[in-house]
Write a protein that binds this DNA or RNA. Structure first.
Length: 563
RNA sequence: GCACCCGUAGCUUAAUGGAUAUAGCAGUGGCCUUCGGAGCCAAAGGUUGGGGGUUCGAGUCCCUCCGGGUGCACCA
């Protein structure tokens, strides 16, 4: 509809011989101002030096209403806005469409036929999977789903750091704790081992030497140490299995896993094969970013070990080999590495120009604890599992209080929904202080509020069915319900969200939709066979439920039928 | 010090240069003889960090100051 209005207005400008201008068609904040509004007269009047209201008058007359049967009236308001009000038929048709398109509602063609790779989460084995990883996972998963809504074939990728000093630190810590490969140890114990090792690395010289030796053994295999290798294998296995458990809970399934251990040597090769791009400096290979307004970064250190940057070059190539040709490669991480990525992409553009062009880094905001930045070294983190458990307990208490039956599966969906929504309800680009109370609350603008609204519609639909109310569009009230004025915008919102990489556009929409629906629900009878509009209200309710479900899905949140 | 990001109600937060700046939480007052109260309605809460500028129009763009975050050579 939005595009249709834009096209019609452009035609009207043409017929008036007014030069094309950059105008917008948007939803006015006030319902009284209609369903769509445009500032075209204001913008064009500026160029022409005319009175905006007079020009608006002319444009209004030139807008051929026959072309727009959905528009009931056009008015001029304020400084010269053109306001369009849609007709009852338009809304009725939307309700019908939503209930009949079967899974297609909300989709767009922005990335139709394109292959999009989305790399996200990227936890390090041997370190604790904390709420920061949950944050980045929620962001990446919703980006992946938004691209799917836009018609893309999406590959979900996960890149994990299974080599390096953090691993050596963990192994050293395990040795100190007396753990052997034959022991059964937990991911939590691994986290403790890492914290122990990382602290020792920083504070004790002798320990540092020992850890460096372990790193050499693991990395270069110059010296074979069975005990170390076995600890490594076991630790990696425990860690990765634990991550899978979390992914399952979070509703994420990766298509491909990449490990630093696979890309290290290749990273070195790439750099050494491109000595025209990189320069040797103090025994290290660096990229001089200054020529491009950036800064210098080390790609291979003086010990000959590749850094993150070099590995990333190899990774880019490996993604293409494993996933085939693609159109876009998104790498979603916290914004603390934004500057590195600029340098990295610059270097990549000189080596793999075609890859660099298709690669996009989405640096989202960081989660901070009220006390400050999280650090797995000092143990100053909130573990993902611990936190999920805490939220689940809260949900369970809530269910018990209301005297409903306990359903483990539903409790988990609600808990995960609460956490994910808390992350995705605001802009992903903004840093945020982790609001524990917010994620633990189920009222107002929250995931459970949306899930509740969905479940409530399922319940009333069942009730309506037994009351003999059958959904129908035959008899519609003259007035448009507030919820209808929001509902049809869903596809526009999804398209905007994917274009701008902003999942919260969907969250804001859903919250508004649920609020409008709940107001409607409070005043209108649906499961009431004597009400002449009940069949339409039921059809509308089902359309809202479908939209809530689809919208929550794009955020990676499930909508249970009962809760 | 340099670079990038941010500053909106007590807290969290929305707003492709547009109309009276969005919501939620907390606090205040209502709504259970009504289909799910994880709900609904109402009132209250603001000099959009300060000051200049551009524009018919600025939370949004430019300048400047203040405050915060992140990064700045061998960690990722």
């Amino acid at each position: 509809m939005k595009e249709k209005l834009q096209n019609t207005i452009e035609k009207a400008l043409e017929s008036l011989s007014v030069e094309a201008v950059d105008f917008v068609v948007e939803h006015p904040a006030e319902v009284a101002h209609g369903d769509y509004a445009t500032n075209v007269a204001l913008v064009a009047a500026k160029n022409l030096g005319e009175n905006p209201r007079e020009l608006a008058e002319k444009i209004m007359k030139a807008v051929v209403l026959q072309d727009l049967p959905e528009v009931e009236k056009v008015t001029i308001a304020g400084p010269g806005f053109l306001n369009f009000t849609l007709s009852r038929d338009f809304y009725t048709a939307k309700t019908e469409l939503i209930n009949t398109v079967d899974g297609e509602w909300g989709k767009n063609n922005e990335y139709l036929g394109k292959k999009v790779l989305v790399e996200y989460t990227d936890p390090n084995p041997f370190k604790e999977f904390h709420i920061g990883h949950m944050f980045t996972n929620a962001v990446g998963e919703s980006l992946a789903r938004l691209f799917e809504m836009a018609g893309a074939e999406v590959k979900r990728l996960n890149y994990q750091g299974d080599v390096g000093m953090h691993v050596a630190s963990a192994i050293w810590g395990m040795q100190q704790m007396g753990l052997t490969a034959d022991d059964k140890f937990t991911p939590q114990e691994l986290g403790q081992a890492y914290a122990k090792g990382a602290t020792a690395l920083k504070e004790d010289k002798d320990s540092k030497k020992e850890i460096e030796l372990i790193n050499q053994k693991l990395y270069k295999h110059t010296e074979y140490d069975d005990a170390v290798n076995l600890l490594y294998e076991k630790g990696r296995e425990v860690s990765l299995a634990y991550f899978e458990q979390i992914y399952k809970m979070l509703g994420t399934k990766f298509d491909e896993y990449f490990f630093e251990s696979e890309v290290s040597s290749r990273g070195v090769e790439v750099v050494l094969n491109n000595t025209d791009v990189f320069t040797e400096s103090d025994g290290a290979w660096v990229f001089k970013g200054e020529e491009y307004g950036l800064h210098t970064r080390v790609f291979i250190n003086s010990l000959g070990i590749p850094t993150y940057e070099a590995k990333e070059l190899a990774l880019a190539k490996m993604k293409q080999e494993r996933c085939g040709d693609f159109d876009l490669s998104i790498i979603s991480t916290a914004n603390e590495i934004n500057e590195y990525f600029k340098v990295l992409l610059q270097a990549m553009s000189l080596i793999y120009p075609e890859l660099a062009q298709k690669t996009e880094h989405v640096g989202h905001g960081m989660v901070r604890l009220p006390e400050g930045k999280m650090s797995s070294r000092t143990g100053d983190v909130i573990g993902a599992m611990d936190f999920i458990g805490e939220v689940k307990k809260n949900v369970e208490t809530r269910v018990k209080e209301s005297g409903k039956e306990i359903d483990e599966e539903v409790i988990e969906k609600v808990a995960i929904g609460a956490i994910k929504y808390e992350v995705l309800k605001g802009s992903i680009f903004q840093d945020s202080v982790f609001d524990k109370a917010g994620a633990l609350s189920f009222e107002g603008n929250s995931g459970p509020y949306l899930q509740y609204t969905y479940a409530r519609i399922q319940s009333v639909a069942k009730k309506a069915e037994s009351a003999g109310v059958i959904p129908s569009l035959d008899n519609t009230p003259e007035d448009i319900y507030g919820v209808e004025r929001i509902l049809y915008r869903f596809p526009e919102v999804v398209e905007e969200a994917v274009k701008e990489r902003l999942p919260h556009k969907v969250s804001v929409f859903l919250s508004q939709l649920a609020n409008e629906y709940n107001s409607f629900y409070a005043t209108e009878k649906i499961a009431e066979s004597s009400d002449e509009y009940a069949p339409y209200k039921l059809a509308l309710s089902l359309a809202v439920a479908e939209t809530l479900k689809k919208g929550l899905w794009t955020l990676g949140i499930e909508a249970p039928e009962k809760m």
